[in-house]
Amino acid sequence: MNPLFDPRHIRRAFSRSARSYDAAAALQHEVEARLLESLDYLDDPKLALPPPQCILDLGAGPGRASAAMRKRWPKARVVAVDMALPMLREAGKRSGFWRPFDRVCADVRALPFAEGSVDVLFSSLCLQWVEDLPAAFAGFRRVLKPNGLLLVSTFGPDTLFELRESFAQADAAPHVSPFATIAQFGDALVHAGFRNPVLDRDEHETRYADLPALMRELRAIGATNALQSRRHTLTGRARFAAAARAYDTFRHADGRLPATWEVITAMAWAPGPGAPIREGGFDVTSVPIASIPVRRRP
């Protein structure tokens, strides 16, 4: 089966957008800020949880969330992970001398971290680029400590539906990714063995003067068409004009064009030690060696 996304295209797009991302990513910053607020749960005095020692920020981009978590827990090791090296260079500007965080260039689908080494795994608006969610979540669970926290957000299928429908009237090639539903997201979490998942869905709307303004913003944040089945030539003036006319039917009374963003957030916990991890359809049990009783011969 051919892969849905082109990872090299994703890496190139986010590498090119590293310097323009922060200025254009107002919605992404808002979603990230709300996800960071969910970390207040860990500081609830009623739970009496110890502060995290190791935190991963997956798809960290320019490192805003990494810096915020390093400030929140100054004694924790915070690791910003991104597949685009230029993004990590931008993140380095936020990794101060007094409260630095680590930076690792890696793909979230193959995390280069030891099993059971992470207390909190945080990822804001990265997983929409991952087609095999169960496999990704299995990898997340592998690196999380027993009872570690997973806190993630992604885009849902209603995201940019106006753009999808408009280009569908002008071009047979796909232009917008088929995002996973909240049910698929929850199923993938359960399949990977996460417990007590809590999922939320919210809709945001941004507005633009015209279709070119929306497309410029998408390029500035690296959100270009990364589907393997995308058209590999320029869209062309005639097709773009036809899409613009179709998009114009969504125009609001204020004269601006809307773009809908469906945001799915999820909080879940890694299970206790000894619970099996599903890999390739099979349960693989991991048991800490310290929990295995040893019988000594007299």
Results as ranks from 00 to 15, higher is better:
residue 16 R to S: 11
residue 148 G to R: 05
residue 71 K to S: 14
residue 101 F to M: 04
residue 33 A to M: 11
residue 37 E to M: 07
residue 47 L to T: 08
residue 179 F to A: 06
residue 272 G to E: 13
residue 52 P to T: 08
residue 130 V to C: 05
residue 166 S to M: 03
residue 290 A to H: 15
residue 170 A to M: 06
residue 87 M to L: 09
residue 239 R to L: 04
residue 164 R to G: 10
residue 235 T to C: 11
residue 23 A to R: 12
residue 85 L to Q: 11
residue 229 S to D: 15
residue 137 F to G: 00
residue 280 G to M: 09
residue 122 F to D: 00
residue 67 A to F: 01
residue 131 E to Q: 11
residue 190 V to Q: 13
residue 92 G to N: 02
residue 32 E to I: 06
residue 175 H to A: 07
residue 148 G to A: 07
residue 205 E to Y: 14
residue 162 E to F: 06
residue 271 P to Y: 03
residue 177 S to I: 13
residue 204 H to Q: 07
residue 37 E to S: 09
residue 4 L to K: 04
residue 168 A to G: 11
residue 85 L to C: 05
residue 2 N to E: 15
residue 279 E to I: 14
residue 297 R to V: 09
residue 293 P to H: 12
residue 236 G to M: 10
residue 24 A to K: 11
residue 237 R to S: 12
residue 298 P to S: 08
residue 99 R to Y: 12
residue 216 R to F: 08
residue 83 M to K: 04
residue 160 L to K: 01
residue 294 V to M: 14
residue 115 E to C: 10
residue 7 P to F: 04
residue 196 N to D: 15
residue 234 L to H: 15
residue 293 P to T: 12
residue 65 A to F: 05
residue 215 M to I: 13
residue 287 V to A: 04
residue 278 R to E: 13
residue 281 G to F: 07
residue 191 H to Y: 12
residue 188 A to D: 00
residue 99 R to D: 07
residue 229 S to K: 15
residue 277 I to M: 15
residue 255 G to S: 08
residue 224 T to A: 13
residue 162 E to M: 06
residue 171 D to A: 10
residue 123 S to K: 05
residue 127 L to T: 03
residue 284 V to N: 09
residue 249 T to A: 13
